[in-house]
């Protein structure tokens, strides 16, 4: 951050602040507007004056509707289960794999890394047909088994971030553990894991958010509304015949709250995870 001290001396003009405020307003504006809409009555949303900033007759009706009638809480529950399970098993699998890649010498290591990188690049649409047919054959549609194919979108990122982390942990500690007779698993569990905890935590958060946001697999495989996740449930609020913007707004606010909490609490870990993808030297 040495450059920041130098930059501060130059001072900032009015255009700088205008641009900054413009940027923040554009990012936040849609949420503010949705928040306002969620308290407006349907008549007002479509009425003569749909763009007033303060609702004429504030109402909680839309919140009641999406919670009681549209079962948005069920969708939030499904999303918590699916994303939670995905996070747990992906963190475990990715930790073992990344440790092996970082510490063991084996043939095909570069091939494995190359495949992981390629999987993160190919279009998700390519797996959807065969996975759908597989799930139909196994009778796994409309169930929580959907967490397994979530690996194709979360695992590569997780492995990539963790390999970078493990590479930064000095080998010396493990060597001394090995001399003391610890097995590979003990070394990972007792020495490396505590040291890598921040990285593992970052991976957990990013995996959780990625799984929480997944849409194509969820809408294709779990088409039954009992198993709808948040993005799917929200997309179904828009039907062919009517769009109740008040309900859409209320649902959007409800489902954004968990995301907001995660971002507020863990923004540092998220930024670390995102930039680990290859930007840091």
């Amino acid at each position: 951050m040495a450059n920041n001290a130098g930059a501060e001396k130059k001072g900032f003009g009015l255009p700088f602040w205008i641009m900054l405020i413009f940027y923040l307003v554009i990012i936040v504006f849609p949420f503010i507007w949705i928040l306002i809409t969620s308290f407006k009555q349907t008549g007002e949303i479509y009425g003569n004056n749909p763009f007033s900033i303060i609702p004429d007759n504030p109402t909680m009706q839309h919140y009641a509707d999406v919670i009681l009638e549209k079962g948005i809480m069920r969708a939030i529950g499904n999303s918590l289960i699916v994303s939670g399970v995905t996070t747990i098993y992906i963190v475990i699998v990715a930790t073992f794999a990344a440790y092996a890649i970082s510490r063991f010498d084996f043939r095909g290591k570069n091939l494995l890394l190359g495949i992981v990188l390629a999987v993160s690049m190919f279009p998700q649409m390519i797996v959807i047909g065969p996975i759908y047919n597989l799930f139909i054959d196994l009778g796994w549609t409309n169930s929580y088994w959907i967490t397994l194919p979530y690996s194709s979108i979360t695992l590569p990122m997780a492995v990539w971030i963790l390999v970078t982390h493990f590479n930064q942990i000095p080998l010396a500690l493990e060597e001394s553990a090995r001399i003391d007779g610890a097995s590979a698993f003990q070394t990972l569990y007792k020495i490396v894991f505590p040291l890598a905890a921040p990285g593992v935590f970052t991976v957990a958060i990013i995996t959780f958010i990625t799984a929480w946001n997944e849409f194509v697999l969820a809408i294709t495989i779990n088409s039954n509304s009992e198993y709808h996740t948040v993005p799917v449930a929200i997309s179904f609020l828009r039907t062919q015949f009517e769009i109740l913007w008040g309900q859409v707004a209320a649902a959007t606010i409800l489902v954004t709250i968990p995301t907001l909490v995660i971002v507020l609490l863990f923004q540092r870990q998220i930024v670390n995870g995102l930039t680990q993808g290859g930007v840091k030297e």
Binding site: V255, T256, V263, I270, V271
Partner: peptide, 16 residues
Amino acid sequence: TSLIPWAIPTAVAALM
């Protein structure tokens, strides 16, 4: 603030 648009589901953002 910058992280919020990234973090919310694309489907939700699209409907918004």
